[in-house]
């Protein structure tokens, strides 16, 4: 239970970082924190104390009640890859923005409003 609460605190921290920080890089770090909070939460949900790897082999006993649910791990792997793609794109955008404006400060990158 404590672990879940910590996950949500991490999520809140990430969202706070995205909303309140003025530096593009810090905003990106905030985004990564939010993504990883969810990933961590997903892995923790399938955590089982003293759980076994779910391998069904001829010479191993089949014991679903002690095995770990493998699906969340596979899904989190996918989510990490997606997060990587998004982060790479956003970092590339931040680099181009720095080339154009010469700053990472969003208070100075404000051509669009209204």
């Amino acid at each position: 239970m404590v672990a879940y609460v910590m996950c949500m605190a991490l999520l809140g921290l990430g969202i706070y970082c995205v909303l309140m920080k003025r530096n593009l890089i810090k905003i990106i770090v905030g985004l990564v924190i939010t993504e990883y909070a969810i990933n961590l939460f997903f892995v923790l949900i399938s955590y089982r104390k003293n759980g076994l790897a779910p391998i069904f082999a001829a010479d191993a006993p089949v014991a679903p009640e002690t095995m770990v649910d493998p699906l969340p791990q596979a899904l989190v792997l996918t989510a990490i890859v997606i997060g990587l793609a998004t982060t790479a794109l956003i970092v590339a955008l931040a680099m181009r923005l720095y080339e154009k404006y010469g700053t990472f400060d969003i208070a100075e990158i404000r051509e669009l409003k209204g």
Binding site: I15, L24, L31, T86, I90, K100, I109, L112
Partner: peptide, 14 residues
């Protein structure tokens, strides 16, 4: 365009 895309990407990811 870059500014708009950054904003869009951040909000979309959230």
């Amino acid at each position: 365009a870059l500014e708009a895309a950054f904003k869009y990407a951040v909000m979309g990811t959230i």
